[in-house]
Design a protein around this nucleic acid. Sequence first.
DNA 1: TATAGACCCTGTAGCTACTATAGGGTCAAG
DNA 2: CTTGACCCTATAGTAGCTACAGGGTCTATA
Lengths: 131, 131
Amino acid sequence: MSFSIGDLGKATGTKVETIRFYEKSGLLPAPARTAGNYRTYDREHLNRLSFIRRARDLGFSLDQVKALLSLSDDKDRSCLGVDEIAKAHLIEVERKIADLTALHTELSRLITQCSCGTIADCRIIESLSPA
Amino acid sequence: MSFSIGDLGKATGTKVETIRFYEKSGLLPAPARTAGNYRTYDREHLNRLSFIRRARDLGFSLDQVKALLSLSDDKDRSCLGVDEIAKAHLIEVERKIADLTALHTELSRLITQCSCGTIADCRIIESLSPA
DNA sequence: TATAGACCCTGTAGCTACTATAGGGTCAAG
DNA sequence: CTTGACCCTATAGTAGCTACAGGGTCTATA
């Protein structure tokens, strides 16, 4: 079984340009070419791209995905490295949630205070303006 | 009272490059220059930059900040436009929190499942790999 | 007066993770 | 033999800065 880049894109929900971008970024190995210089992918590539997509959907950065891919190649190795990357990412996600939650509180407060009159007595503008 | 770009930066916690970037982006008006071609800012600039920083801290995009600034100039106008921008931003923040919370659930689940043995039986790698 | 150091200037390239062109080549169907 | 769908490379754009390179200006001190 071999796929064109378009087939691979459809199979994984990835744009063609993104696949080429992953190749240039070193996430996806450069595949063989046809006589007409078209890329041809096999099941290995499909698996690897699926892995990349899932990891990206979980919010891992490209560098983290690269690290996860290379760790996943060595089956006998300890998975401590994987755990470390995942935990670091989890902490980052927690940090973002905390930041956004604080932001949400602040924004809600401002919006409910606004009585929707004129700019002159708008609480949103007021709280953005210096004292 | 007039400030150099460095003074303005210190007063607002903004890097000099960022101030020049805001000027080029149309957020901050181009100030007067000294004989030696240095930018000189006054209190008006300081107020405007403070406004920008607060709005940015609240997560508004540069385009939103630009809109808020131009709305804030017309004191007699209704503040409905301001309210609209703030509410749109709030919804966006809520969406991000929801996304990150879902991600957090998923990541936590993966990490707790990992018994930290070898890659071969790592649940994190397993759940990233295709069936 | 000379010079060191802190500051300022413009312009450009870099970062993430793509996306969107421009300007071409390849291939199968009608 | 031509149309249309697909593919190719290379480059520029997105947000919001940040970091140079390669210069000029200003002030304090020897």
